[in-house]
C-alpha cells in the first residue's frame, strides 16, 4: 500500500517536472502563434495577451500571401528536406551496413574517415562548394542544396547507424543467408526494420537544421524560384523596419510541416522500440 502511494508520489513529481519543462519549451512557440494573429500595435503594447476582437488581425498572413511566392518557397523547402533526408538515410544506412557487416581492408580507416565529417563543419568549405556548383552549373538549383545537405548529414548518420547495426544479431543475418536471402534483402528486410529507432533519430537530428538553414540557400540558391522558406521570410526583416506581423505569420506556418514530419518519425521511433518487446 505504502509502496504504491510512494510510486504515485514519484509519478506526480515526474509529471510536474515534465509538464513544467513542456510549458517552458512551448512558450516561445505559443507567443509567436498568438502574436501572428494580432495587429502590429497590439503586438508591441501587450505581447503576451491573447488576440481579442479588438486586436485580432490577419494582416501578417495577408502580407505573407501577397508578397513573394510563399507556396513556392514552401514547396522548395519541403522538397529539399524530404529528398535530403531520404538520401541521408538510404546511403547512410547502406554505408553503415557495409562497415558493420563486412570485413575488408581499411574498414576501420574508412569508418574513421567518414566520422571525421562530424567534427569538421561543412561551412568551412563554402567557397569551394560554391566554386564547384558554379562550374557544374548547379547554382540556383534545389539539387545543389540537396547535395550539400546530404553530404552534411551522412557522417553522423553512418556513425550512429553502424553502431546500431553492429548490435543486430549475426545469427539472424546468417539465418537469412542460409534461407537464401540476398544481401540486399537481408539489409532491407531484416536489418533496417531492427534499426528503425536509430533511423528515426538520425532523421530528426538532420531535419531541423536543414529546414531552418539560411546559409546555403542564401549562397547557393538565392534566385526567386528556388528560395526556401527561411530565405523567403527574410524579405520581411529589413535593415530599418521589420514587418513583425509577416515574420511571425511566416514562422507560424513554417512550424507546421516540420511538426508533421516529426510526428511521422517519432511514431516510427516508438513503434521501433516497442515492436521487439511487446509484439
Amino acid at each position: 500500500m505504502s509502496s504504491t502511494r510512494r510510486t504515485s508520489g514519484t509519478t506526480i513529481a515526474a509529471h510536474a517536472i515534465l509538464i513544467t519543462y513542456t510549458l517552458i519549451a512551448l512558450f516561445p512557440v505559443f507567443v509567436i502563434l498568438i502574436n501572428s494573429f494580432k495587429s502590429r500595435k497590439a503586438i508591441f503594447r501587450e505581447p503576451l495577451a491573447l488576440p481579442n476582437a479588438e486586436t485580432f488581425s490577419m494582416i501578417g498572413y495577408e502580407t505573407v500571401f501577397n508578397q513573394g511566392d510563399f507556396f513556392q518557397y514552401f514547396q522548395n523547402s519541403m522538397i529539399v528536406t524530404v529528398v535530403s533526408l531520404t538520401l541521408i538515410l538510404l546511403f547512410g544506412a547502406m554505408a553503415a551496413f557495409a562497415l558493420a557487416e563486412y570485413r575488408f581492408k581499411g574498414n576501420t580507416l574508412m569508418g574513421l574517415y567518414l566520422a571525421l565529417g562530424i567534427m569538421i563543419p561543412i561551412r568551412i568549405g563554402t567557397v569551394a562548394i560554391l566554386e564547384m556548383m558554379v562550374s557544374t552549373g548547379l547554382v540556383n538549383t534545389l539539387t545543389a542544396l540537396i547535395l550539400v545537405y546530404t553530404a552534411q548529414g551522412l557522417p553522423l548518420a553512418v556513425f550512429i547507424l553502424s553502431e546500431f547495426m553492429k548490435g543486430v544479431s549475426d545469427d539472424l543475418k546468417n539465418a537469412g543467408r542460409i534461407d537464401g536471402l540476398s544481401e540486399y534483402k537481408i539489409f532491407f528486410r531484416l536489418v533496417l526494420p531492427l534499426v528503425r529507432p536509430a533511423m528515426a533519430t538520425v532523421a530528426v537530428f538532420n531535419m531541423i537544421p536543414i529546414w531552418n538553414d539560411l546559409w546555403f540557400p542564401l549562397i547557393l540558391a538565392p534566385a526567386e524560384e528556388v528560395k526556401t522558406l527561411t530565405l523567403g521570410s527574410q524579405v520581411f526583416i529589413g535593415q530599418f523596419v521589420t514587418d513583425w506581423n509577416a515574420v511571425l505569420s511566416a514562422l507560424s506556418m513554417a512550424i507546421l510541416p516540420v511538426m508533421i514530419l516529426y510526428v511521422i518519425f517519432s511514431r516510427q521511433l516508438i513503434r521501433g522500440i516497442t515492436s521487439g518487446a511487446v509484439k
Binding site: L172, N174, P193
Partner: peptide, 14 residues
C-alpha cells in the same frame, strides 16, 4: 543443402 539452428534461435522478428 544444409539447415542450421542457432543458439539464439535467430527467428525473423517480424
Amino acid at each position: 543443402g544444409i539447415a542450421m539452428v542457432f543458439q539464439s534461435y535467430a527467428l525473423y522478428p517480424h
